[in-house]
Amino acid sequence: MNRDLSDDTLMAAVARGEEAAFGLLVHRWEHQVRAFLSAMLGNREEAEDLTQDTFVKVFAEAGRYRPAGMFRSWLMRIAGNLARSRLRRRKIIGWLPFEPGRHDRPAGARDPQRELEDDQTARAVREALAALPERQRQALVLQRFQGMKYREIASAMDTTLAGVESLIQRGLAGLRETLERQGVEP
């Protein structure tokens, strides 16, 4: 199957039950979904489970997808709903951190002291992010980590452009306050 096919074209094929198209979509988007869920949940196993669930849902709902060039928003909406549902279920707002990032990088690639400081800062930022209300966190993660435009975020979160602006503005202010309390100099 042509790997350059658009998401909309692939989704039409998925709706017809074409396995190759579905496999292509999963491989194209799984890293972004996993990264988004990791940032939302702060737990690798849960993120992995929900990444699977997201694509199972994509498959089940493929017949309802309306091609409008907004597949990423639709996908992130599914992932976001699953994440918020999971967060509600476990009733934990706090952050369950991943292993520190230094384990994810090649050894010796950077100055150890600088690496440690960066890891501590990154960890503090993630913890501050986790302390935000879910929707503020979701909007910030979609914008800052996924590179989505406000228009896409609005679609993914079922809100307006003004709503996204407000969520990001308040989320950013909340993040700054938390970081200041933690002694991290923004």
């Binding site: 496999g23 999963v26 491989h27 799984e30 890293h31 996993r34 990264a35 990791s38 940032a39 690798r44 993120a47 992995e48 990444t51 699977q52 694509f55 991943f98 292993e99 990032g101 384990h103 994810d104 990088r105 960066d118 800062t121 990154a122 930022v125 993630r126 992010l129 910030l140 800052r144 980590f145 950013l172 993040l175 970081l179 991290v184 923004p186």
Partner: peptide, 19 residues
């Protein structure tokens, strides 16, 4: 800028495919 530099865990990208 700090938020942008708080890289997501590389393990998330290196994980085996869910396919």
């Amino acid at each position: 800028a700090l938020l942008g530099s708080a890289e997501l865990p590389a393990a998330a990208a290196q994980a085996p495919s869910v396919w």
